[in-house]
Simulated assay, not measured.
Amino acid sequence: MQYLAKVQQRAFLASTELVLLAQQTGEYTWERLTSERIVEAADLVGFEAGHLVLVELNPLHQVTAVEDATPWVLALVDQFLAHGVTPDFLATEVERAERWRQSLTLKSQEVDRRALETAARRDEIQALEQNLKQEREALEAQRAELEAREAKLQQEFALLQQETGETD
């Protein structure tokens, strides 16, 4: 695991130790350590007391790699601080992103509500169309029945006229 540490000299033993300051928790995330953790470091040639270093520790908390943290810190300055990325700016951006997410959620819910309303109206229209079709079929059946009755009445009327015309 990688840590940001400060080199510290122990005067009474003339040895070097590392004070761990922060721990990498993800690819782009770091967490400050709340309690002081010190790791013994032999062979820290070229690093003076107070120097910041990036340290790789194995699971037994033994130093496996040490490198100067200056390039890493300067990269942070170039990537974030040179462009005005401050904690306030990040907090504002997080807040803005949260408002945007909430707005999208509300819009999505509105679209879903309208889709449900549209589906309900479509179902209602289909039911009305079905009722109209049934009513039309019923009216056509009544019309055919009336036309049949009219034809029968005309036949009976014609027969009646023939009978009355023959008796005259």
Rank of each mutant, 00 (worst) to 15 (best):
M1V: 04
Q2H: 00
Y3F: 09
A5R: 12
Q8P: 00
Q9E: 15
Q9C: 15
Q9A: 15
R10V: 13
A11S: 06
F12G: 08
S15R: 02
S15Y: 08
V19A: 13
V19I: 13
L20E: 02
L21P: 10
A22C: 11
Q24M: 05
T25G: 11
T25K: 04
G26E: 14
G26D: 14
Y28T: 13
Y28L: 11
T29D: 04
W30N: 12
W30Y: 13
W30P: 09
E31V: 03
R32A: 10
R32N: 06
R32H: 07
T34Y: 00
S35L: 11
E36Q: 04
E36R: 08
E36C: 03
R37I: 10
I38N: 13
E40Q: 05
A42N: 04
L44P: 03
G46Q: 05
G46A: 03
E48Q: 00
G50I: 12
G50T: 12
H51Q: 09
H51V: 10
L52E: 02
V53S: 05
L54D: 01
V55N: 01
V55H: 04
V55F: 07
L57E: 00
L57Q: 01
N58L: 04
P59V: 13
H61N: 14
V66A: 14
V66H: 15
D68I: 03
D68G: 01
D68L: 04
A69K: 13
P71V: 12
W72A: 00
V73P: 12
V77A: 05
Q79P: 03
F80Q: 02
F80A: 02
A82P: 02
A82G: 03
H83N: 02
G84R: 05
P87W: 07
P87A: 07
F89A: 06
L90R: 03
L90K: 04
T92F: 09
T92Y: 03
E93S: 06
E93N: 09
V94E: 10
E95M: 01
R99A: 14
R101I: 13
Q102S: 14
L106T: 08
L106E: 04
K107L: 14
K107W: 14
K107P: 07
K107T: 11
S108D: 08
Q109D: 00
Q109Y: 01
V111W: 07
R113W: 12
L116Q: 14
E117C: 09
E117M: 09
A120C: 13
R121H: 10
D123H: 10
D123Q: 11
E124V: 04
I125Q: 11
A127P: 08
L128F: 01
Q130C: 01
N131Q: 15
L132C: 12
L132V: 11
K133D: 08
Q134T: 12
Q134L: 09
E135Y: 08
E135M: 08
E137N: 10
A138P: 03
L139T: 00
L139I: 04
E140N: 12
E140P: 09
A141S: 05
Q142C: 02
R143E: 02
A144G: 08
A144H: 05
L146G: 06
E147V: 03
A148F: 12
K152A: 14
K152G: 04
K152N: 07
L153S: 00
L153I: 11
L153V: 09
Q154L: 12
Q154P: 06
Q155V: 12
Q155G: 15
E156Q: 15
F157R: 15
A158F: 02
A158C: 00
L159A: 15
Q162Y: 08
Q162G: 12
E166A: 11
E166L: 05
E166D: 11
E166F: 06
T167H: 10
